[in-house]
């Protein structure tokens, strides 16, 4: 992977340019679909963009110096790390470097860590409760998530994402991708796993005290998370033998949007579970699918 490749990846596709466009599109699809399911009309197409501009243009309430620094740095770090993770996805060109999967996992885990810190640094009781729930849920979700990736790595015999796309057996890949899909609602704070940002109980959890540009950055990092997490599922779902980018890119985009529709339908149709119930469900039931993938991968069927 040369410097120019990395530049195109970071700034154009699937980096900055695509990330903004897709993030706002996915946020709009999510809100619009949810509204339609509730027999409402829902927000217009440009709504996420205007929400972002409005939040950026607000004057945040004054804070003590360190708190103000932490409250802008944490969401900025979260958004930047998620963007970096997105740029690692091999969509148009099948290029990568050994170990980019490890970097990808490390970068997508930055957002939850920042969210937990952000909840506690805001010194709000709701932020604290949201942060502790976020920590619990993300640990529970990462068990099936990492086991599924481990199964793919075992089957492919490589830590490069491009190898993960082309090599693993379909008997490993299908249960592994399904297990990844099951952890997405937890990572994206969607029903029934939305205990960390349960608005009727703890407002928005960790981000309750965030205002103006600070909140705008959180919303942005959440939207980038949508693009990245649906992206990794889409990248793994497109078969590796399809090499021309003219087919791969639309397939990636369409599968991403299908995942968004599935997640929205799930969250609109379900009620919220308690944090402990979610943790039990993920550790007992959610890990089952990824363990199947791992057993198949280790046995080499």
């Amino acid at each position: 992977m040369t410097f120019s490749d990395a530049f195109v990846r970071l700034l154009l596709f699937p980096g900055l340019l695509y990330a903004f466009a897709a993030a706002w599109l996915m946020e709009w699809i999510e809100r619009k679909l949810r509204a339609r399911f509730q027999h409402r009309i829902g927000p217009p197409f440009y709504q996420p963009f205007f929400d972002f501009v409005k939040l950026v243009s607000k004057h945040p309430v004054e804070r003590p110096a360190f708190q103000a620094f932490a409250m802008i740095t944490l969401p900025l770090a979260a958004a930047a790390a998620t963007l970096g993770a997105l740029a690692l996805l091999p969509v148009a060109d099948m290029k990568g470097f050994p170990g980019d999967l490890v970097l990808f996992v490390a970068l997508i885990e930055v957002t939850p860590v920042c969210a937990v810190l952000a909840g506690f640094v805001s010194r709000s009781p709701f932020g604290g409760v949201g942060a502790s729930r976020e920590a619990l849920l993300i640990i529970a979700a990462n068990v099936p998530f990492l086991v599924a990736l481990f199964a793919l790595v075992t089957s492919a015999g490589s830590l490069t994402i491009t190898e993960l796309i082309s090599r693993p057996l379909w008997a490993v890949r299908i249960p592994a991708v399904l297990a990844l899909l099951m952890t997405l609602p937890v990572k994206l704070h969607l029903n029934p796993f939305s205990a960390a940002s349960a608005e009727q109980e703890i407002y928005t959890g960790a981000t309750t005290e965030y205002d103006g540009p600070r909140l705008a950055l959180w919303e942005l990092s959440r939207a980038f998370e949508w693009v990245t997490l649906t992206g990794i599922v889409a990248v793994l779902a497109v078969p590796g033998f399809i090499t021309p980018w003219l087919v791969r890119v639309p397939a990636f985009f369409v599968i991403s949007l299908v995942v968004v529709v599935l997640l929205t339908t799930l969250s609109a149709a379900t009620a919220r579970l308690r944090a402990a119930q979610v943790a039990r469900l993920l550790l007992v039931v959610g890990s089952g699918m990824s363990l199947v993938a791992l057993v198949v991968a280790l046995a080499g069927w």
């Binding site: 809100r31 509204a35 409402r40 009309i41 829902g42 927000p43 217009p44 709504q47 205007f50 929400d51 309430v61 709701f126 608005e199 009727q200 407002y203 928005t204 309750t208 005290e209 965030y210 205002d211 909140l215």
Partner: peptide
């Protein structure tokens, strides 16, 4: 009435 079509959202925190 669905005010979300006008971009209006109800938020739980006055900070938002």
């Amino acid at each position: 009435y669905d005010v979300e079509q006008l971009g209006i959202l109800q938020h739980g925190s006055p900070r938002h």
